[in-house]
Structures are given as structure tokens and as C-alpha cells.
Design a protein around this nucleic acid. Structure first.
Lengths: 229, 229
DNA sequence: ACAAATTACTGATAAATATCATATTTTTAA
DNA sequence: TTAAAAATATGATATTTATCAGTAATTTGT
């Protein structure tokens, strides 16, 4: 495992690349590398975060619990993404829970290093800002999708999203395997409805499945479903 | 009308307050004050923005058109808010349209002033970042609301939101008057459904209405509806 | 002030989706 | 390994919401 932030490849993918040598050294000296097992939380809704988590490996679901007890997954974060930024920046407790979907390896970076750099290095702040602008745009898209598309359309979209963002394994299955419940929480529907649509997609030859694993069989048709045909 | 940014009260409400005297002077010299009539657009989805709009008066709806031709209103922006920031920051064309809901008065600030300050003044960048962090948190809340609450719950929530954010006039009506269609686009439902629920709320004494104007009659009961009772 | 256009409203019905019940399969832990 | 637990699957049904059709009220432009 690479232990010096200066040499960490992951850094290339996120805002940390805008840090100066000295800043990076401080981060490196104060960071703590952690292994999070599948199903374990990085943090929970309402926690006050004392730092951010830089994902080195694995995938985390960011979700928010609703009054009726269902989780809505707002984002799936993978290698190179930094979690908890918003909470640290706004100095509020976090509004999302982060739970490992895979076994994960993350670096915890205390907020002091972050805040210090935010105040002194405009390039870094601007990098973070650009990232957040992007996240906000994505969030707006999710809002429009959820409110204007049918569950079936969103299910099809979710599978394409999973392929595009997490890829496929050698057998043609989606590299990120989610439980049916997680899928339903991404899409924002009842688990039974998600399962029903998976069955339908299987019958129609849009996807194939083996246990939890799901593979995309006919991307074109899946895209047609998204478009509403 | 106040013509010098340095003296503009609106500035107190937004990130511009973190600008230095000189930066503010530049902004002031390059800004253009515009009057936008109710129903007119500030900008449209897909436009490349050459600057941001600082709202001095009136309200703008930020919306995104979906494939089926319905608008989803993602945010209602009022006095003190700055529109188009995200687009300018990420140097992409905007993903939202901004249309005046009221008669508006806005200052257009060319992107050069903004970008320049973003690169040189960490305090300003941090201010903008904090704002965006807040917007992102709100967007996450909207996602959870839309996917987990019923239309009726969201309608009740919308009225409370309108009261809390835009206040009431002397006769006890919501200060911001929206068309039924706009309300349905905020809530993310069919216009007829929104109208039906308004009728129901009227019958049950939760709200009262006179033409377009809607007033909150029983806030407690409205809150109960939001909570699902 | 008035005709035209838009917006608001209501009912009937269809479609989408959630919920409940229960069976089957898969995973987990002793 | 096996019993228990959890996840997946499917049918029946209820509920929610959208759509279509049509009328009434309001707003707009001349």
C-alpha cells in the first residue's frame, strides 16, 4: 500500500492534485488509512465529521433515510472521490450516510488540513468548487429524472449508469453488484417493483442475471426504454 | 436605484461580500443592470453564460425541461441570490433555464470579474463554495422528498416552503403567487393533480385561496400532512 | 369593453406503482 | 452441514397518480 500522499495515484482523480508540496506533506502526515468491510458505515447521517474520506478502493453508497424508513441512495462514490467534503466545508453535521457496498480502502484526512488549504490555496478551493458544481448539476438531473420518468425508465437508466461508471467483469456482468434493495434505493422505488422490472427486462432479453449479478445484454433496447419507447 | 456595487445592500446576502474593495470596483464598473419582465427568460437551458446574474428584486424559477415536455422547477431564487454561477465555474453551458416569476431587477456581472476573483481571492472562492455546498444539500433533500413522499405530502411541503422563504402579504396570502402549473412543476406532478389537491386542502381548511392567491390557514395540519398523517 | 386565449377546475377512466401475502432461493452462522 | 435468517421472486389487490375530455373562470391584447 502506498503510504505517501505525494505518490498516491488516486490523487490524480480529485481536488488534492491542486495542493502544494508542503500542503500535501501535511495531509500525508495526518491522514489515517482505513479498511472498511462491505456493509460497514464510513459515517452516518447526522454525524459531525472531523475530516473527509478519500476513496482508494471499493464503492460507497451515500444515502438519506426518509420518514417511512426507506433509504434513498443519492450517489455511488468510487475510487478517487472524496466523501464528507460538504459537511466539512459548511461546518454542519452530514445529511447523508456513507456505507461500503464493497470492501473499501479509504484515507481519512482531518479537517484541519483541508480547511487550512481551503483558506490559503485558491487553486485548491477552485478545484473543490468545480467538483461541487459538477455534483450539483448531477443532482439536478436526478431530480428531473425521478420526477419525470417512470420507474421502468429509471431502472433501465440505472443499469446503463452502472455499466458506464463501474464497468463490466470478464463474464459480461456489471462490475458493481448491488442487492435488489440497493437497486430499488438508487431508483427510488419499492424493492418488489424493482425485482418485477428486472424479471421483465430478463424476459425481454435486455439483461441477463445470475444470482445477484446482472449483465447488460441489449444496450440499444435498454436505451430505448430510457427514451420511453 | 443604487448603481455602485460597493453600496449595494443585496451584496450582504451573497458571496460578493467577500470581495475586496478593488475587486468590487471592477465588478461595479463592468456590471449591467437589467429589468426582466414577468415571464421573460434570464437565460435558457443550453446557453453559454458570459456572466452571472445577481438578483436585486423579484423571483426567478430555475427549471429543466424533461423529454416529455414538462418543466421541473429545481429552485426558486430571490433577492440576494446569484444565478449562473455553476455554469461559469464549470465553464459549461447551463443545464437550467431561468425565467422571471415576478418582474425582476438583476445585475449582470461578466464572468471575467468572477473568474479573476475566484483565482485570486480564496475567501471569495470559499464563500461561493459554502453556498454551493448548501445548494447541494438542498438538492439531496429534494431528491429524497420526491422519491419518498406522496404528491399530497410534497404539496403541503411546498406551501410551507413558500411561506417560510417568501413570506405572506398583509392579507395573509403567500407573497409569492405561482400559477397552478408552476406549483405542479415545483412539486413534480401533473397540473390537474396539483389542482385537485389544492381543492382538497381548501375543503379541509388547510389553505384558502382567492384566484391565484393562496394563503395558509392551518399550518399545524399542513405539517401533519407533510409528516404523513 | 370584449373576443380570444389562457388558466383553473372537475369527472371519468386508465395506467403506474405500492403493499400485502406467500413461496422459493440464497446466504449466514452455529 | 444444516437450521435459521435473509434476499429474491411472483401473484393478487389496493392505492396513487396521470391522462383525457370537457366546462367554467380569468387574463390578455386590442
Amino acid at each position: 500500500m502506498e503510504s505517501r500522499c505525494e505518490n498516491c495515484i488516486i490523487r490524480q482523480f480529485n481536488s488534492l492534485r491542486a495542493m502544494s508540496k508542503e500542503e500535501l506533506k501535511k495531509v500525508s502526515d495526518s491522514k489515517i488509512t482505513k479498511v472498511i468491510k462491505k456493509g460497514e458505515p464510513l459515517f452516518e447521517e447526522g454525524d459531525k465529521l472531523n475530516g473527509v474520506y478519500c476513496v482508494r478502493n471499493g464503492v460507497s453508497k451515500l444515502s438519506k433515510l426518509s420518514a417511512n424508513g426507506k433509504d434513498q441512495i443519492v450517489k455511488l462514490a468510487t475510487k478517487g472521490e472524496v466523501l464528507g467534503q460538504r459537511s466539512v466545508i459548511s461546518q454542519e453535521s452530514t445529511n447523508l450516510s456513507a456505507v461500503a457496498v464493497d470492501d473499501m480502502e479509504v484515507c481519512f484526512i482531518p479537517k484541519e488540513s483541508i480547511n487550512n488549504t481551503l483558506q490559503k490555496n485558491p487553486n485548491f478551493t477552485l478545484e473543490v468548487l468545480r467538483h461541487m458544481a459538477h455534483d450539483l448539476k448531477e443532482a439536478d438531473d436526478v431530480i428531473v429524472n425521478i420526477s419525470q420518468k417512470t420507474v421502468k425508465q429509471r431502472m433501465a437508466e440505472a443499469f446503463l449508469y452502472l455499466k458506464n461508471n463501474f464497468g463490466e467483469d470478464e463474464d459480461g456482468f456489471l462490475a458493481l453488484t448491488l442487492s435488489r434493495e440497493d437497486i430499488s434505493n438508487v431508483v427510488g422505488t419499492a424493492t418488489e417493483s424493482a425485482i418485477r422490472i428486472i424479471s421483465e427486462f430478463k424476459k425481454k432479453g435486455l439483461i441477463h442475471a445470475s444470482g445477484k449479478k446482472i449483465g447488460i445484454k441489449d444496450e440499444r433496447k435498454l436505451l430505448e426504454v430510457v427514451e420511453g419507447f
